[in-house]
Amino acid sequence: MMPLLKQVRIEVKLWLRRREAVIFSLLLPVIFLAFFGSLYGSQKVKTTGISYISYLVPGYAVYAIMAAALGTVAANLSVEREAKILKRLGGTPLPRAYLILAKVAAGSILIASVITVLLLVGTLGYKAHVHGNLAAGLLVLAVGIISFSAMGIVLGGVAKPDSAAALSSLVYLALSFLGGVFVPLDQFPSGLRTIANVLPSERLNDALQTIWTRGHTLGDTGWDLPIVLAWAAAAIIIASRRFQWE
């Protein structure tokens, strides 16, 4: 257990020492929330009467999960493979599974910190209403973090290092836009809405909105979590076949 904890600690440190990782996965979600919060924060969505900021908090939480778990994890893994760091660590007694687990755990710790800040900024700064059962919210977040980490590991395990950062950014930005994370889905044309309905970003966003924004229960999230988990399962299957250590 100790080697795993030490590995998590060093992964967190290394993450915080990489400028791009700090900017894109830790600062940007908070800056976006503060920026759009101050622009539209007090406006209410006509159909629901709920303030716009209350939709933004879960949206940027989903964005933060994707930027860190998918974006940074993929970019780091790819670089570490190419620089033969994964190979070197494979020559020590540290089990390879621990290497991956430590990355996911370090990402989870940082994502949890960002989401805490998002919640504080949203509720204290812009009077967002965050409802719902704490355990249900945490469960949805955990499913999201683990699932997007699995997708990040696949991307990092197969992408070339010179394109991994750009590719993973493209993927999570596309998932953010198409999944209605930045712009509510009801403003989408119906064709795009159909696509959005099968994307893990939209489903995670919807689950979090259901609990935090609308104050409903886990049961009301319906197919959201199973669909997110299906993406994770597909990612794990691909990773187990295609992941390259060297």
Partner: peptide, 29 residues
């Protein structure tokens, strides 16, 4: 792997790890 040690032909380590941290990390394995 507990009984052996190795140096690869290409030195490979995290760019942003400090020398003392790397030695501590590896000793922990």
């Amino acid at each position: 792997k507990q009984l052996t040690g190795l140096m690869l032909q290409q030195t490979a380590l995290y760019q942003k790890i400090r020398v003392a941290e790397a030695i501590d990390l590896f000793c922990g394995y």
